[in-house]
Design a protein around this nucleic acid. Structure first.
Lengths: 194, 194
DNA sequence: GTCTATAACTAGATAGAC
DNA sequence: GTCTATCTAGTTATAGAC
């Protein structure tokens, strides 16, 4: 048993893992409860509903991700170094929190109307961090970019897609992935080298 | 009513649309039936089960996509032109069949064991088309590629991600998207220009 | 804070009328 | 080929014992 965490955290962790494997709709509260050794009724002491579990997972993940990416670029002046730092943080956070980021990235359609509004707004804010950096990069260089919005989405899509196939014990190291992705993105958006 | 198609095709079409909006598990047979103006019991005359609908959608989509991409590159000699043609076909097919490709790209986890094997194998085959092209491109040029598998997955992830946000009536034309994506990919994997 | 028991509901699937 | 009616099972959520 995972004694280091509160029951609430253990429920969220178990839920995120099942949401990733089966999807939100297909994962049942009985499975979530059973995964951490409690009964489904007990979940309602910690969460209001199944929807509430999903929302809290997505909300906390988006908030944390946004805050560490913002923090990571705050002292950097060079646009290119900002871009590298943002990609680096994004990828490392995704790899360290595969279950949570997978839910945050793919389960928007499972949110109810009220929660959807909140998450969409936070997502936009996160995407804007990257969009701003890309605009900075391109204003100071010969650029290949046709559309910054498209580029931002393509970039994030590519980096986020890691959650779908990356395996910690696989053949590729995290550093390999970050370097290759940065190379990919950098050369894709700018004629400048280095 | 869509008189041009058989009922079976209309069911598949309605199902794919709902699978995209809500996910396979959350979409009900009653919703699918209602979307095309029949009752849920009637579906079983055309399909064995809900799982069968999903499988046939994914299988036919993967088969068709594979065949038109293969056909599109068959007469092309230049590796770079092959890459462009493959990306072009992939993106156009995705945009023309958003509901079907979305299911094929995201609902693997909803397949049962038997169907999973079949789809995984066809997916691998499709990915290999791109991997082979990337290997061809990189053997004839100064390359930035660390790992062809990673590059293939990043490329496909990026192009496939279109299904998540692209809107036909949006500000971006299909040609814009294809050009930017090809630029992105090309410069990402090779030092050669054009 | 976790349990058991169960209410209220909805799902996929089947059978047989037409 | 589509319908109505229904079976069976599983779902979220609640109530109250401990």
């Amino acid at each position: 048993m995972d004694d280091k965490k509160t029951t609430k955290e253990r429920i969220a962790r178990g839920a995120a893992s099942l949401f990733r494997k089966q999807g939100y709709a297909a994962a049942t509260l009985r499975q979530i409860a059973s995964a951490i050794g409690i009964k489904s009724g007990s979940i309602y002491y910690h969460f209001d509903s199944k929807q509430d579990i999903l929302f809290q997972i997505m909300d906390s993940t988006l908030c944390e991700l946004t805050s560490i990416v913002e923090e990571g670029i705050t002292k950097i002046e060079s646009p290119l170094q900002k871009l590298y730092a943002a990609i680096d943080t994004h990828i490392r956070y995704h790899i360290d929190n595969l279950d949570y980021t997978y839910a945050a990235d793919t389960e928007i359609r499972s949110l109810n109307e009220e929660n959807l509004k909140i998450i969409i707004a936070k997502r936009k804010r996160y995407e804007n961090i990257f969009k701003e950096i890309i605009i900075e990069v391109t204003t100071n260089s010969t650029t290949r970019i046709i559309n910054t919005k498209l580029t931002t989405l393509a970039l994030l899509q590519m980096c986020t897609g890691l959650s779908l196939w990356f395996q910690k014990d696989g053949e590729l190291s995290i550093q390999d992935v970050i370097d290759q992705y940065y190379q990919f993105v950098m050369s894709g958006i700018s004629d400048n080298e280095k």
